[in-house]
Design a binder for these strands. Structure first.
Lengths: 130, 130
DNA sequence: CTGAATCCGCAGGGATACTG
DNA sequence: CAGTATCCCTGCGGATTCAG
């Protein structure tokens, strides 16, 4: 796959999984929350609030595996204290991710309107669609 | 959810679904491919190649619903010719999406190495991990 | 050519309970 | 506090078939 004038180095088949991985809901939120400063497990849980403990763990493991997030255990004993932080590589992801996040924030209202309008047309033939 | 100094207008709970939607593998690729120029159905199919016809249709419908992609039917008769193009709103998504795509392309090798290294440590205790 | 519809397997992801 | 393990359900997404 090629992108014409906007040449993307490498194969898009290699980047697409990565894209959908970091573009992932939980991963993206985690990166963004972590971009503020390193945080502990339950602190992340509280801040992302809608995340389940399972998905937080799974997401963190995945990001750790990618080398985007570092896990530091301060004491392997009472009470356990684990801190998660972005690696340098993870830091480089923040900006593009934030850009996309910003775009979403800026346009979510319009998108929601578009969706509602589109659904209205399709769902209700009696609507005043002319 | 707040992002501290990098204030994101609106609620992250509203943007996260959008983010995961446009960050979606097929949606992202479709937008990117369409950013080059408007294209027809089977042309998209060929260029994204790995996509199934079902997912292409589903993805296009979703993007259409969001108002990111426009669908234009040139003739509703023999042979049907349908062209898909980005809407102005869709155009605004190209840049941030491309930035993320670029990041993936730049770092996919390092990520793959990180993954391999991480898997090596965990998967094989006999590895020379010191 | 441009789809819609159906079947179906598999992974994502939530809830809950248990552990160190 | 910081996880792990299990259950289980939903939806993604591929393959195939039918239609205008």
């Amino acid at each position: 796959m090629k992108l014409g004038h906007m040449s993307v180095p490498g194969d898009c088949n290699r980047i697409s999984p990565i894209l959908s991985h970091v573009g992932n809901k939980w991963a993206a939120l985690t990166i963004l929350v972590l971009s503020e400063r390193p945080k502990r497990y339950n602190q992340l849980r509280r801040e992302i609030e809608t995340i389940s403990q399972r998905m937080l763990t799974v997401t963190l493991r995945g990001l750790e595996r990618d080398g985007l997030v570092a896990r530091e255990v301060f004491a392997h004993k009472t009470p356990p204290q684990v801190e998660y932080s972005l690696t340098p590589l993870g830091e480089t992801l923040v900006q593009p991710l934030f850009a996309l996040c910003e775009w979403s924030a800026l346009n979510c209202t319009e998108i929601e309107r578009n969706q509602a309008a589109h659904d209205g047309e399709a769902g209700d033939p009696h609507a005043s669609v002319a």
